[in-house]
Design a binder for these strands. Structure first.
Lengths: 236, 236
DNA sequence: TGCTGAGCAATTGTTGACAATAATGGGAAA
DNA sequence: TTTCCCATTATTGTCAACAATTGCTCAGCA
C-alpha cells in the first residue's frame, strides 16, 4: 500500500519543467512523495546531483527530513547515494531497463494468472469495457487516452489479483523506468502492436484461463522488451 | 525480554543467542548490516520493538545512525516504522510468506531460464557436482549440509544467469521470510521431496533448456509454497 | 469492580551546529 | 603553456540537545 503511484505513467510529463517552489511541505513522507513526483516528472534529470541544501530550500524543510526522503528513494531505486558524494538521480541504462522489464514480465504474469483465477463477472465486464475503449482510442489515434486506458487495465488486473506483494514489486520496478517507458510511447505504431496483446490478456482473464493469461501478459511485456532493445540509444 | 530466538537463516545458528555487545560498530552501513544480521539471526523476534536508544547502546553509535539504518531496513521490508510509534521487526504472516514465495517463484524461474541460456561447460560441471553432493547429503541424512548446498546451488544459478535486477529482488524477498524458511527446514521428509526437484533444475540448465529450467524451478518453489501452506500455524 | 481522564515517563521527531570528506581553483615549477 | 600540489570551499556525515507525541499509571468516580 502507500505509494499509490498515480505519477505520470507512460505519457509525456508536459514540458513544464520549471522548478516551482513547491510550498509548505513538511513531514518526511510528504517530502519523500514530493521528491519522487519531481523525479518521475523529470524535473530532476537522470544523473543530476541532488544537493541536500538545495532540496531543503525547495521543499522548505530541514536537511534531516530531506536525508530521510533520499534514503527512502534510494531504497526504491530512484536515487543513488554514495557515501560522502551525495545523492544523484539514478541513471538506469538501457540494459538495466531491459532487465527491470524482464522481471516485471514475470511478476505481471503471476498477477495476470491470479486475476484469471479470481475474476468475477462484474470485473470481467469491466475488463471488456476497457478493451472496447482501447480499440476505439487506437482507431481514433488518441494516444494519450490509450495510454491512460493501459494504466487502468493494468491497475484493474492488479486489483482483481489482489496480490499485495506482487503489486509492490511491480510498482517499484515501474517507477524506475518511467523515462524509458515514455521513450517507448513515442515509437510510432506502438499502440497498433500492443492493442491485440491487451485484448488477448483481457480475453484470457475473462475466460478464467490462468495459463493463457500469464502467457498473454508475458508475450505483451516481452514485446515491450523487444521494443526497448530496438531503441537502444547509446550512452546513459 | 525475549533474548532467545535461536533460529536463523535456514538452519539454527548455534544456541549462542546471547546478545553480545557487538563492539565498535560505527558507520551507517555497518550499523545497518549488523542490525540486519541480528534480525535475520533471530536475535530480535518478529513484532519486537526496536527502541532507538537501546539499539544505539548495543551498536555503540548515535541515534542518528540507528535511525538511518532502520529506515534502510524498512525499505527492505525487514522492519516496519510507524510515525511516532517506533520501529518493529516486521511480522510477516503466513499468507504474506506465501505471496512472497510466489513472487520469488516467478523471478527465480526467470533466473533459471536465463542460466540455461548462458551456462558454459565449466559451470555445468560445477552444477552437476553440487547435485551429486546434494544426493549424498540427503542419503547420509546431513540436513545442515544439504541446506548449505541448496544455498550454493541457488547462488551458482544466479551467478550463471548474471541478472542483477532479478538477484536484487530475490535477495530482498528471501530476507523477509528467513524465519518461515527455517520452519520449513524442520518439516520431516522435506529434503527427500526437494532433491529430485533440484536435480531436475540442474539437468535442465546443464542441457541448456530454458523452458525446462524455468518449469523445474517453478515446480520446486511451488512445492515450497505448498509446504508453507501445510504448516499454516495460526496467528502472527 | 470497572471506567474515565489527567498527569507523567518514555520514546520518537526535529533542529542547528560542528567535524570530516570530497570537489575546486589558483599558483608555482618544469 | 601544461602539470602538479596545496589551500580553499562546498557538501555531506555525525552528534547532542530540544520539542512533540504516545502510551501508561493511577487517582477519582459511577
Amino acid at each position: 500500500m502507500a505509494t499509490d503511484a498515480d505519477h505520470g505513467g507512460q505519457m509525456p510529463p508536459e514540458p513544464s519543467t520549471e522548478r516551482r517552489p513547491a510550498r509548505a511541505v513538511n513531514t518526511a513522507v510528504q517530502v519523500r512523495d514530493a521528491l519522487r513526483d519531481a523525479i518521475l516528472k523529470g524535473e530532476y534529470l537522470p544523473g543530476e546531483r541532488l544537493v541536500e541544501a538545495q532540496v531543503c530550500e525547495r521543499m522548505e524543510t530541514s536537511r534531516f527530513t530531506v536525508r530521510a526522503a533520499l534514503a527512502d528513494l534510494a531504497g526504491e531505486g530512484l536515487v543513488e547515494v554514495r557515501r560522502n558524494r551525495g545523492a544523484h538521480v539514478r541513471k538506469v541504462s538501457m540494459a538495466e531497463a531491459v532487465e527491470i522489464t524482464e522481471v516485471r514480465m514475470m511478476v505481471e504474469g503471476l498477477i495476470a494468472a491470479r486475476a484469471a483465477e479470481l475474476v468475477d463477472p462484474d470485473r470481467a465486464t469491466e475488463l471488456d469495457e476497457i478493451g472496447v475503449l482501447m480499440r476505439r482510442a487506437v482507431e481514433a489515434g488518441e494516444h494519450r487516452r490509450y495510454s491512460d486506458l493501459n494504466q487502468r487495465l493494468h491497475a484493474l488486473v492488479q486489483e482483481i489479483a489482489g496480490h499485495a506483494t506482487a503489486d509492490r514489486i511491480v510498482e517499484t520496478l515501474r517507477g524506475q523506468i518511467v523515462r524509458h517507458q515514455y521513450m517507448l510511447s513515442l515509437v510510432p505504431g506502438r499502440p497498433e502492436t500492443s492493442l491485440p496483446q491487451h485484448e488477448r490478456i483481457i480475453a484470457a482473464i475473462r475466460d478464467r484461463d490462468p495459463k493463457a493469461a500469464e502467457a498473454a501478459m508475458r508475450e505483451h511485456i516481452s514485446s515491450v522488451v523487444e521494443a526497448l532493445r530496438a531503441i537502444d540509444y547509446p550512452g546513459s
